[in-house]
Every structure is written in C-alpha cells, then in structure tokens.
Amino acid sequence: MDSRNIKDSHKILLSVCILTAVFFFSLFLGRYPRPGVMNPSLIFSDPLAHSLVFNLRLPRTLTALFLGMILSSGGMVFQMIFSNPLVEPGFLGVSQGAAFGAAFSIIFLSSSVWIIQGAAAIAAVSGLFLSYTIARRIRFGGWVLRLVLSGIAVSALFSAGVGILKYTADPMGELPEITFWMLGGLWNITWREFLTIFPVSLISLVILFFMRWRLNVLSLDDETAFSLGLAPGRERIIFLVTATAATAAIVSVSGIVSWVGLIIPHIARRIFKTDTRFSLPGSMVLGGIFGLICDMASRTLLTGEIPLGIFTSFLGAGIFILLLMSRNIKVEK
C-alpha cells in the first residue's frame, strides 16, 4: 500500500468513527423524557426509556443506517456500471417499480412484510429489466441518454400504475398505506421489519464490498473490461441484481427515499477519490451518516414526523444543485 492509500484508509476510519458517534447520538435523541438528548444511564433505571431505546429507536436507527448505506452504495454501483455519474436506482425504474409492487401487494395480495418485500423486489427487477431492454431498442442517442430516457418512461409507467392502484384503493385502510410508500419514512419500523430486510441487506453490502475493485474495471468500455479478464455482461448482472435486491428490500419497509443514491456517491468520490476500493466503502459510510441525520431530523424537528423522503429530497436536491454549480460533472456518452 502506498502512502496515499494509507491516507484514504485513515479518512474511511475517521468516517466510521463519526458514523458510530452519530448512531449512538441518534439512539438517545428524541422527546423522552423531554425534547433533546436522553441521559444514557436512564435506560438502566427507567423501564420505559429502556423499552423506547431497545424496542423502538434501535431497530429504526439500524434501518436508517442500512437505508443510507444501501441506497448510496447502490447509487455508486449504478453510476460505475453505466459509466455515468448522473444515474441511481431510482432513475431506472427500480424505485417506482418497487413502489408499484408494494402497492399491488397491499391491495391484491397481503400486507405481510415478507410478501410486500417480495412483490417490491420482483417489480423493482422488472423495472430495471424493462428500462434496460427498451434502452437497447431506442434507435437514437448515446447509450446513457437512451437509458435515462427509457428509465424516465418506465418510472412514469409504474407511477401511473401506482396512481390507478391508489384510485381503486380503500380510502380508510389501503390508501394511507400506499401514500406512506410514496413519501417514505421509518415511523412504523420495529424489530420485525428490520429483521426482514437484514439478511438481504447485509449479504448485498458484503458482496459489494468484496467485489469493489472490479467495479472500477466495469466503468471502462466493455471491450477494455473484457481485455482485462472480466466477463463484463455477467459481472454487471451480479452487481445490478445485488444492488437492486438490497434497494428493493429497504424500499419495501421505508417507501421511496430519493436522492441519496445520486448525491452521496458524488460526495464520496470527492473525499475518497474515484477508485472504488475507497469510494465504495466511503459511500456506504457517508450514506449511513446521511440516513441517520435525515431520520433524526425527520422525527425530531417538529412534534409530528416529517416523511423521510421529503427530507432527503430537500437536502439531496439542494446539495446536488451546489455540486452541479461548483464543479463540472462530466457526461460523455
């Protein structure tokens, strides 16, 4: 390892320390016993504080952490694989597909977390597959333009589908549940929800972490990646399926949370440089911090909850505009 790598490793270590601090801060921040930070010793003396931290805040905070890590690493994967810094899973029909799958499940199948998650995953993968297939058949423009255009169209199709489902939904039970989906939030997360997403999320993050060097090579032209001993088609599918499965899982419990996957990879590349050995874990850690901060803000800023998706959109779009104005983001193809 050369000295630069050691410096980058130190940066990641420092980010992990910040992440840990924010995580514990989040566990003790809230409105009990009064608005602000709870004294940690209270969990040993006050059964209500104990229950609040371990049964409500801990699963929710862990989910916020995974949400940030998965959406931002998924964004990094999509940006590298499509050689375009302006894509994220939400741009290619994955998020809207997941929302459609969940809404469909709520109305026609079951409200069981497992079935919603399965339906969301299947529809998310279908969204990606549709976007990809249509992009291949568009007869004008570069590859990325075609991909983004077909992604917009597929997302719009799924949105229209969600609209129809909402129109037919029972306004007392199903409609609020679907509406929650479109706004995104973690207010109904318990250990049950967390444990349903935990295995897929953890396995996906581990796979992405260990395969991260190859993500660099996949950002090159196909024949170059091939000449460097990769099977680009096959390895792209491994990355896409891994990132999409994790995104669908997290979105099935959180609803649509936009922008995280687009902006965090940009910030990670600025701090940890382009090499995915550092920028991918960096993106995971920064995403985790971002997820925790947005969730804390969404549950503590007002007496009621502000939906998480609204918060990440506000923050994300603002940061994105700043990024666009401060430095040229190259898109060549």
């Binding site: 032209d221 590349r269 090499d275 193809k333």
Partner: peptide, 20 residues
C-alpha cells in the same frame, strides 16, 4: 480511444491493468 467518465488519476488508471 477510450471513453473515461470518472476522474481517475493516471496511477489509478494504469493500476487497472493489474486486474487479471
């Protein structure tokens, strides 16, 4: 010619040759 989307340093880019 090769399309390059991200700002790799020369060293990072040449290092990709070690992949096989």
């Amino acid at each position: 010619y090769e399309h390059i989307s991200f700002e790799y340093s020369l060293l990072e880019y040449v290092l990709l040759g070690r992949t096989p």
